[in-house]
């Protein structure tokens, strides 16, 4: 098993960036609007509810982060490259899609995992296929939520129609990247 430290080297990510300021402004603006339109009581209620939810999510996020950071150390880069790297072809995109569908956990886990796999050698196409596999077929969501609300026939048709989509999206991204690189 490879014990090479994964590249790129560990550097602290930028804490305050445009994306963070954007969601901060959104939270402050919508929070002020709720306070203004619905009153202080409703504002406090939502604030406490979502702070509680964040607290409940924290252990799950921590586990996801540990897994995501350990992956590049544990998976030999050559193997990740062969499985879901830029030259992994349709098979690689299918593997990435399936991984997205079966891996447990919501966005706070799947995105760090995708970051970890991309640091370990997965390409952008495989990353897009993985996230798409998760959002379209995430077993947890499909089995627990969708089937309890919508008819099984409907779910089956939706899944069948969506089946090729993550692989197609990954292919389009790879082709675009290649054209971009040649230019």
């Amino acid at each position: 098993m490879s014990t090479q430290p994964p590249d790129p080297p560990a550097k602290p990510p930028k804490l305050i960036d445009g994306a963070f300021l954007f969601i901060l402004a959104l939270a402050l603006g919508s929070g002020a609007a709720v306070f203004w339109l619905k009153g202080a009581d409703r504002f406090t209620q939502i604030l406490l509810h979502d702070l509680g939810l964040s607290l409940a999510l924290l252990p799950k996020i921590a586990a996801g982060v540990v897994i995501a950071t350990a992956l590049p150390f544990l998976l030999p880069r050559e193997r990740v490259l062969a499985l879901i790297g830029p030259e992994s072809g349709l098979r690689g995109l299918a593997i990435a899609t399936a991984a997205g569908a079966v891996f447990p956990g919501g966005p706070s886990v799947t995105y760090p995992l995708t970051i970890g796999l991309m640091a370990a050698g997965a390409d952008l196409g495989a990353g897009v296929a993985l996230v798409s596999g998760w959002v379209l077929f995430g077993l947890n969501r499909t089995l627990i939520w969708e089937l309890s609300f919508l008819p099984a026939h409907f779910v089956a048709l939706r899944v069948a129609l969506s089946l090729p989509a993550p692989i197609l999206m990954g292919l389009i991204v790879r082709r675009a990247m290649r054209t971009g690189a040649e230019r």
Binding site: L26, A27, S30
Partner: peptide, 8 residues
């Protein structure tokens, strides 16, 4: 911050 924004 994201969860708070989404809630509001």
């Amino acid at each position: 911050v994201g969860l708070l924004g989404a809630g509001f």
